[in-house]
Design a protein around this nucleic acid. Structure first.
Lengths: 338, 338
DNA sequence: GTGAAAGCGCTAACAA
DNA sequence: TTGTTAGCGCTTTCAC
């Protein structure tokens, strides 16, 4: 039997309306005496307004949700921190959901978020729930992070993936590597992956290097899968002189595989990855990567979302924030930075 | 103007109660015809019940919250996955909060969670909000993870930290190391840290090694702090032949510092850490650690919490689940496992 | 400055 | 089998 607004009203000898005004800081329409009295009663009773009731009435929850692809990926956690910090500062609550890159799980989270009446949504979608997202975007502001969905008319925050790959390929080619194998997760439906593949082909072409389909390897990020593909590749035909991992999980798997296959980095093979992560510099040799400003991307997404929710006037049309990748040269490609 | 239960009722030509019964799967008390009719109308309207209204009435939200200390720490993310998977399976929603080890932030999250009427709480507390937690625990089930709070009468899930440290010290001593420096975060208020310090002293004593206060170093997990302390230690008196990091973040900082100081691991100094993490095995040399089953601990916490919420009969008295640490020997202490 | 009353969208007796 | 009614705890006109 928690204490309600009626209890406070009774104890303070005023009406619920007055207490409500107090709760909403409308102190102007209230005598100093009642204001003080209510304050005392609330403190004494340790009263906490019921957000459900309030939201039901106001039709706003002051809560947004973030659905990320994989909470075990440092890219996601950094992005989350960016979102979280902005929300905190803006007085919004955050519900965090980990869709695990599974469309079903994503869908069930979306269902629950809608039921809970969140005011807005930031999502790094697996891409299979377009219809549902479309419908959601019609009701509440939605911001896509990392992955675009062309069909969806909403704000998005992405990285210039093609540029990132260009930097990476340029770096490799500059060091004399030409046979660059690339390990990616299935890339048909997920925009950054597709962009990276496209960027890879474009960059090769720019350097006059013919694209070889056998160097484009689609796999999950487990060491076994990666190692099997890599071993097969090494056994058959001209061996690659560089490998490029599509995200940090993939890069880790590549490094494990390369080591298991007793290859030396970078002498036998150069290794380069997308996404930086805390301990990339601690590996031997330290790994060269293209970094995405995950924290800033998260923060920007939250900024856009909350601006929309608060009806701040931003362009009616979807805004597309594109962030710049950064090449962090360490030594896994044959060049020592320090 | 989203569609409500009244809209559905009208369109289906029945009363709200009947629709409500449908929503709550009480099909027994309903003709097949109405059941079908309602189903059609709901599907056509793409109706989604408002969880706020439902929860307000039922006084249950089917939602629990998890407040973790630091989402950037792999220990936390693994634990979260354990919690999340169990919730998913049990049909509970999860609100995730990252308190960042800041009591203020923790408090503000607790306030909002209470306002949102969560049914239960899993918390890895910074330890400064005892009074508030006590009061919360009196209303709803609370499960403490990782860190105990003796004053609080609620379930807890912890690791046998003293045992973990004992394994670690035994390992080191077995390899001939006796001057073991230990880097910890401030340990006066946080139980696992305190347990680890106590366990360290006890283990030394068991081996007849006198405890030297100058080897117990309290610091944050930044490389600069750690490196400063380590440099000072090396310069003054008998140098340690091993360093032990209190969690994975600390261990990473130690490794960075040791490298910056041009010491060789394990020849000049052995390094061992608490918590395993994905890439510990990829470092050179691979790092020996004491691992905590973070996923299982999270899963167990969720299991306990939800059992309490559902009133399953578990002992009235707080249950204390203690997990076993596991020593993972790699080669940073002078012994190669593979 | 303050209160009475209606209602947010739902559930749960109690009737019929 | 179904409908009527009365709230859940709050906000918000509209009076006074």
């Amino acid at each position: 039997m928690p204490v309600t607004i009626s209890d406070i009203a009774r104890q303070a000898g005023v009406s619920k309306s007055t207490v409500s005004r107090y709760l909403n800081r409308r102190y102007e329409c209230m005598s100093a005496a009642t204001r003080e009295k209510i304050g005392e009663v609330i403190a004494a009773a340790d009263y906490r307004p019921n957000a459900l009731a309030r939201s039901l009435k106001q039709k706003r929850t002051h809560t947004i949700a973030a659905v990320v692809a994989n909470i075990l990926n440092p890219f996601s956690t950094s992005m989350i921190r960016g979102i979280e910090d902005f929300c905190q500062q803006a007085g919004f609550n955050l519900i965090l959901c980990n869709a695990d890159d599974q469309p079903d799980k994503e869908k069930s989270y979306l269902e629950m978020l809608l039921a809970k009446q969140v005011d807005g949504l930031i999502i790094n979608t697996a891409g299979q729930n377009k219809a549902m997202l479309q419908q959601i975007a019609a009701h509440i502001p939605v911001v896509l992070v990392d992955r675009r969905v062309p069909e969806l008319s909403c704000d998005s925050v992405t990285l210039d993936n093609r540029k990132g790959v260009a930097m990476l390929v340029d770096h490799l080619v500059g060091l004399g590597r030409r046979d660059i194998a690339l390990f990616t997760l299935p890339f048909d439906t997920v925009s950054p992956r597709l962009d990276r593949v496209t960027g890879y082909k474009a960059a090769l072409e720019r350097h006059g290097i013919p694209f070889r389909a056998e160097l484009l390897l689609e796999t999950d990020t487990s060491q076994v899968s990666v190692q099997a593909k890599l071993a097969k590749l090494l056994a058959s035909g001209p061996r690659p002189d560089a490998v490029f991992g599509f995200n940090n999980l993939m890069t880790m798997a590549i490094i494990k595989a390369v080591r298991a296959l007793k290859l030396s980095i970078p002498d036998d093979i150069a290794v380069i990855g997308f996404d930086d992560w805390e301990w990339a510099s601690l590996l031997e040799p330290p790994v060269t990567v293209v970094d995405q400003p995950a924290y800033d991307m998260g923060s920007k997404a939250a900024t856009l979302l909350i601006a929309r929710i608060q009806g701040k006037r931003i362009s009616k049309r979807p805004v597309v924030a594109v962030f710049e990748p950064k090449l962090i040269i360490r030594s896994s490609c044959g060049e020592r930075a320090d």
